[in-house]
């Protein structure tokens, strides 16, 4: 079997098998749909609410992406400060760890009160807060563990700190950065949904989930879960795609 065929066939086969088992398990145990909806219950919901699914998915998607972009900018900035200055690292690290340890579900109501009515802003803020920590840490570690010889080959020629950063430190940190971005993208997604569900404001897939709950439409809730999974997969593979372009050199080809 060639590589491409396997890459398409393997996941398809596994998904079909799991769906089939699920369908069978619900039917065999005669579970009512409020205990467990079957895949065949979901299809009518997608057909019925397809326009809502598209609108709500878009709302969730763009707010996640904006939050993540903010996390990339601020996280990289913090990472650079901590990576280059030991003083800043030792000062900032405990604060960042403490900030990261606060469960964001408890921050949601506070943010919702702080910026009342600014729903998009609040959602982006939570997505940002939950996802910037891994980026800051990985960039700072990448920069602070740069072997001195790497600096010396350019420094011995009289290169400036900025040149060393652009030509060596930055590209050398990219693999770590993308590793962190893969974690961060999922976290940002969780952050968006947290805001949408803990502080419902009529936007995003979280809102659709909530209306399913309120109107006792249990298959709809399951349908939202699947839509979320699909979005999550999409975002993750966008990051993988970017990683191939910018840090593909770090991936060793199988010999």
């Amino acid at each position: 079997m060639n590589d491409t065929a396997r890459k398409v066939l393997a996941p398809t086969l596994f998904i079909v098998a799991i769906l089939a088992f699920w369908e069978w398990a619900v039917w065999y145990n005669e579970l009512p749909d409020f205990r467990m909806a079957s895949p065949s219950d979901l299809i009518p919901r997608y057909i019925q609410f397809w326009d809502l699914f598209l609108i709500k998915s878009w709302e969730t998607l763009w707010r996640t992406v904006v939050g993540l972009a903010l996390a990339v900018v601020v996280g990289t900035l913090f990472g650079m400060i901590m990576g280059f200055s030991r003083f800043a690292r030792e000062g900032l690290y405990p604060i960042l760890v403490g900030f990261n340890a606060i469960p964001k579900a408890t921050v949601v109501p506070i943010v919702a009160l702080m910026f009342v009515g600014q729903h998009d802003f609040n959602t982006v803020l939570i997505a940002f807060m939950i996802s910037f920590f891994p980026i800051a840490v990985s960039v700072s570690i990448g920069l602070s563990t740069l072997e001195p010889e790497y600096r010396d080959i350019l420094r011995s020629l009289g290169a400036s700190q900025a040149t060393i950063f652009w030509k060596i430190a930055l590209p050398k940190t990219l693999p770590e950065f993308f590793g962190a971005l893969k974690v961060a993208v999922t976290l940002a997604f969780i952050g968006t949904n947290l805001m949408e569900i803990v502080s419902p404001h009529g936007r995003g897939l979280g809102d659709l989930f909530d209306s399913g709950r309120i109107s006792a439409d249990y298959p709809l809730m399951f349908a939202v879960l699947f839509a979320l999974a699909a979005l999550g997969i999409l975002l993750f593979y966008v990051v993988v795609f970017l990683e191939r372009i910018f840090a593909g050199w770090a991936e060793r080809s199988p010999v």
């Binding site: 072997e147 080959i153 420094r155 020629l157 009289g158 030509k167 060596i168 050398k172 050199w249 770090a250």
Partner: peptide
């Protein structure tokens, strides 16, 4: 007094840039 461009250096670790 400072690094000079008329010097070349090589170390035990070849430090080639992998990218």
């Amino acid at each position: 007094t400072s690094p000079r461009p008329t010097v070349g250096m090589a170390f035990q670790n070849p430090v080639l840039l992998e990218w």
